[in-house]
Design a protein around this nucleic acid. Structure first.
Lengths: 128, 128
DNA sequence: GGCTACTAGTTCCTTTTGGGTACTATGGCG
DNA sequence: CGCCATAGTACCCAAAAGGAACTAGTAGCC
């Protein structure tokens, strides 16, 4: 038996998102956005940019352990979604600055809550 | 030239986490925890469980689009970290109930902020 | 001119993860 | 016996994460 037969996983009438603002709906764009923000590197990058515009190298140093490739991907994705701005200065050596947009600044609030909750509650977790 | 020569990515003295509560430190356990919580399915699963204990099938229906494998993975990971409880009832057909621990309940708050922020601000995002 | 250095990436490759579909185990019911 | 249900697991493939090495463009130095 297939999955489809056992459970009506999606109401089926709402393929194009009848309830347009439900992260629990698979087809809702909210899902993609949640996927973007609920992500380790995004949360860290936006938090770093909260303290002002930063260069690529500075972000790389702040987000300890991030590889340049992943950092580029993360920043591009945030840029594509209108959360950060990328500004290139034709200096030498080349300088590129990343900064938050208004939207990005707003998105920082819930992510900051998450980060600080983690830091404040880490001791309550089993050592494993 | 290698990466090591150009940037001291990690202070190197703090391999075992001198500042024990910094999500920006690669070696800090906070990092793993952030990775666990800052995750689409975790955020959705914990949010679903906020409304009371749920069976596997109910969660699967609520988290539209999740496959049984991924749901199992997500729930086990949350269980391993002490965020959810898993209770098996030896009935027939088998019943398994998932519920939040105290820690899990606390973790819901920041995640709920994130989910509702997304739902409330989705319209501000570029259509792309 | 040739060498080095700087920044901000990209490319290539391997490993890990995500994810779907199909299948299993258990037991009641007709 | 065959069928239903639930709660998963097994298997496989594709996508993504991730690391190390390499590139581009320019300036300064010898």
């Amino acid at each position: 038996m297939t999955t489809k037969a056992t459970l009506p996983l999606v109401p089926a009438a709402s393929a194009d998102c009848d309830a347009p603002k439900d992260v629990y709906a698979a087809a809702c764009p909210c899902r993609d956005l949640l996927d973007l923000l609920a992500n380790k590197w995004s949360a860290l990058a936006l938090g770093a940019l909260e303290q002002g515009p930063q260069r690529f190298g500075a972000l790389r140093a702040r987000l300890q352990g991030v590889s340049p490739k992943v950092l580029t991907q993360t920043l591009r994705r945030l840029e594509d979604h209108g959360l950060v701005d990328r500004e290139v200065f034709a200096e030498v050596p080349l300088r590129v600055e990343y900064s938050l947009t208004g939207l990005g600044r707003d998105a920082c609030a819930p992510l900051a809550h998450l980060r600080t909750w983690v830091e404040r509650n880490i001791d309550r977790f089993p050592a494993a």
